[in-house]
Nucleic acid binder design. Structure first.
Lengths: 107, 107
DNA sequence: TTGACAATTAAGCTTTAACTTAAATATAAT
DNA sequence: ATTATATTTAAGTTAAAGCTTAATTGTCAA
């Protein structure tokens, strides 16, 4: 059985600011590890390890091109997060609405 | 100076499944710690510590009532997360659209 | 084929997280 | 006053994260 690639741990994968930064970069364009690493204040292996974690939860894919490895964003696993956080939208919407009503009463 | 209540660490706060569970419970109703703790397979202090972390990032508030402490959801800090993950929506939307187009060509 | 480059894996270290049990605090009930 | 209840804080343990340097693998170029 091939289990769904570490679902649930998407939250943990994305908890780290470096990893969110990596995803943000990859949202713009596919990039090789060296280029990615330049944006962060840590060694190349460290970035490589972060990429491994993103790979494990399916948030990025690797494509080999010569001796470089281009990373490509796969956003799908984030849908789980979007769905979860979406359930809370009504709470802040409710509050905004209350604020609006208040401003209307007290213009 | 009162710094913005630990913004950015909302991701980390919510990375833990127990803490997400707590928020999910509180989305339905305000509850005292004991009632909250019953839902989890760990000691009361452990749950109390999770609640502290949620408090620190402003995701819950405490209201004292007799000797109980009712916790109340404050969803606002999740907006940061919603905004971040929302930026990725276009990616899976694009993919769904591609799938749709494919199915139309190959009915 | 030797050497340089791109990246990962291995090994080790330090910090942080997530628990536990025990002690402390605060309120309520007897 | 004592005792019980609700919760937190303290102290200590274990495991996982996040780094680093060093060693390894694979590809290109001279």
């Amino acid at each position: 059985m091939s289990r769904p690639p570490a679902s649930g741990d998407v939250f943990r994968a994305v908890a780290d600011p470096t990893r969110r930064g990596l995803l943000d970069l990859l949202a713009a364009e596919d990039l090789p590890v060296n280029d990615l690493a330049r944006s962060f204040d840590m060694t190349l292996p460290a970035v490589s390890q972060h990429l491994r974690i993103l790979r494990e939860v399916g948030l990025v894919r690797e494509r080999r091109e010569g001796r470089q490895r281009f990373y490509h964003l796969r956003a799908d696993p984030l849908r789980e997060m979007a769905a979860w956080v979406g359930q809370y939208e009504r709470f802040w919407r409710r509050k905004l609405q209350a604020l609006g009503a208040h401003l209307e009463r007290n213009p």
